[in-house]
């Protein structure tokens, strides 16, 4: 999100992505407080080459 802040050229798309990420973080925090464990998709995240 810091990166998007520093890249004004990302424009509306960047702002939208930032909002999505913020929502995701809040959602994830609530999940952890409840389940005491991060999302499996996050814990076992692996790099895959973006197309």
């Amino acid at each position: 999100m810091d990166t998007i802040d520093r890249l004004p050229q990302t424009g509306d798309k960047g702002i939208y992505l930032k909002q999505q990420l913020k929502d995701k973080l809040i959602e994830h925090k609530q999940y952890i407080d409840k389940i005491r464990r991060g999302y499996a998709g996050i814990r076992n995240w692996k790099w895959s080459n973006p197309k």
Partner: peptide, 25 residues
Amino acid sequence: VVMPAVATVPTLETLAAVSIMRGHL
């Protein structure tokens, strides 16, 4: 943008951030 990372966890986090950004932007 240049995104340097030092050591294990920051590298992992940087790679994750990069994969999100490359997917969306």
